[in-house]
């Protein structure tokens, strides 16, 4: 309101109230300050409703029992609405994975696993978000025996690293830990 010059008739800012004006300005400023704090606080509950709710957070971790998975087999589990590939790698696959760092997004295999036998990666192609093939026995696994994305032909190796095609980075490794010999908790 301070930026208009027209003083309306009868406005309180008249010169003969100098002393009062000072007190009113102080009162006005403190009221405005308190009001601004109140308005700011009032906005938070509205914003916070859009954050993940308790029932969503309760599902933010997924526990996986690894015991039924035999060597060379993969399972897909859902974690936070995304597919996670859990693969029990064969000796040959591990050796293959350890031989190289990959080219496009070099990373050592032991940085990508907690136990060499188990590879846990988020099953979403880092190119444009398709789900790569290679989980089921009949699926194409691509040139590097890992996963193959049917959308634009990205091929991942047995460590989930990008080796060929347009995807820029390796399949992401989700945060997880072993809670027992054959159980992991993702998230």
């Amino acid at each position: 309101m301070a930026d208009h010059s027209s003083t309306a008739p009868g406005t309180a800012h008249s010169a003969d109230h100098g002393h009062d004006d000072g007190r009113r300005d102080f009162l006005l400023l403190s009221t405005l300050a308190v009001g601004a704090v109140g308005a700011g606080l009032a906005a938070w509950p509205f914003i916070d409703t859009m954050n993940p709710s308790k029932d969503v957070l309760a599902l933010a971790t997924t526990e996986v029992d690894l015991s039924p998975i035999s060597e060379g087999q993969s399972i897909t589990v859902i974690w936070r609405g995304k597919p996670v590939f859990v693969r029990r790698r064969t000796k040959a696959e591990i050796t293959e994975a350890k031989k190289t760092l990959g080219e496009k997004d070099p990373e050592a295999d032991d940085k990508r696993t907690k136990k060499p036998e188990w590879l846990v990666v988020i099953g979403i192609c880092t190119h444009l978000g398709c789900i790569p093939l290679g989980q089921k026995t009949g699926d194409p696994k691509g040139d590097y025996n890992g996963w193959f994305c049917p959308c634009h032909g990205s091929a991942y190796d047995t460590s989930g690293r990008i080796r060929k095609g347009p995807a820029p980075t390796n399949l992401a490794v989700p945060p997880y830990e072993f809670t027992g010999d054959t159980t992991i908790r993702i998230g």
């Binding site: 309180a12 008249s14 109230h17 009062d20 007190r23 009113r24 009162l27 006005l28 403190s30 009221t31 308190v34 009001g35 109140g38």
Partner: peptide, 19 residues
């Protein structure tokens, strides 16, 4: 908070309407 704020508003209202 509202009681304090409303009291402030009331004081300000009295002041502004004094003339």
């Amino acid at each position: 908070f509202l009681l304090v704020f409303t009291a402030l508003l009331y004081a300000l209202k009295r002041k502004i309407w004094a003339d």
